[in-house]
Amino acid sequence: MSKFDHLDINPRILTAIKRTKLTSVESVLSLSGPDLERTCQLSSSDVSTLKHAIAESIPKPDPCTALDLWKEECSNNLKIKKLSIGCDVFDNFLRGGIISRGITELSGESASGKTQFCLQLCLTVQLPVTHGGLAGGVVYICTEDAFPNKRLQQLITHYNEKYSGLKERIQFSDNIYIEHISDYDGLTYCIHKKLPVLLAQGLIQLVIVDSVAALFRCDYENHEMIKRAKHMNTFAGKLRSFSQQYNIPIVCVNQVSDCFDKSSTRKVLPALGLTWSNQVTSRFILAKTSCPIQLENSIPNESVDGSVRKFEVVFAPNIPQIVFPFIVDKYGIHGLK
């Protein structure tokens, strides 16, 4: 039984195509008209019928109008889900939260609050949809250092208190799947073998990679940049396909590198270059400022110098470029107006 048998066209054309070495529908679509005429010995009108039939047979989402999207009368995969950050100011600025489209990148210098942001997302994602969450678990891929378990417990305690009124009590720590990875091979294994299994069960609503930079910044020599680009694209492509298939947000943490240009002010850019940037859908940068704050609840070893940090939206399809301050305290991150 060949793949072409289900096509609803003249059997004469089908026999012609079966005589050739072409076995997949993809290869037929990839050939140009004259090429097909030559290989199949068909006339050009037959070839266009064939191509048309094949194009129709490829499973693809039906076109819909923007109005359908707006009213959410489209297939579930096209509906945009938003994951709340767990802070009204953040949600306000980010128009509801992290979107379930493509890769959301968080970059910033060390100790700018990236991991804090991610930890908070680990908890909000488990909240019911009515509370801004996605009612699911999270896969947390750790590549830099150990997962900050202590801090997570601290946040969980706070969240348990905050959401004690919920009908069903959430066991926050039961739905966080942590994976420590130290090299590209481990990463490949994880995203090609382990993640699909977890995702297929429908328990996971968020994937966090903290950080992508650690993996791609150190393991490659200067002459291996093409290989690095290939690896990055495969990795990003896989993550994006998860986002698409299961309609879940993907958050990647990235480091920054200094950027030298004529101006004397210090400027940082997210690491990994243009190849990676092209794969990113929304990019946020976190940074420390020198402006100090005095908070009653701040604990010295968490917010080291108690300074205000800033959150910058560099680009996102639905959010304007904005910068706003935020702080990290015992209860997590909070935006300031």
Binding site: L29, K51, A66
Partner: peptide, 26 residues
């Protein structure tokens, strides 16, 4: 205005090619 925008989502290049092939009919 929203009704006048027809949205096609293509997940890979095969879908893109197929959609382009069918676009004249659309």
């Amino acid at each position: 205005v929203l009704k006048g925008i027809h949205y096609f989502r293509c997940h890979d290049y095969i879908e893109l090619l197929a959609n382009i092939q069918l676009l004249p009919d659309f």
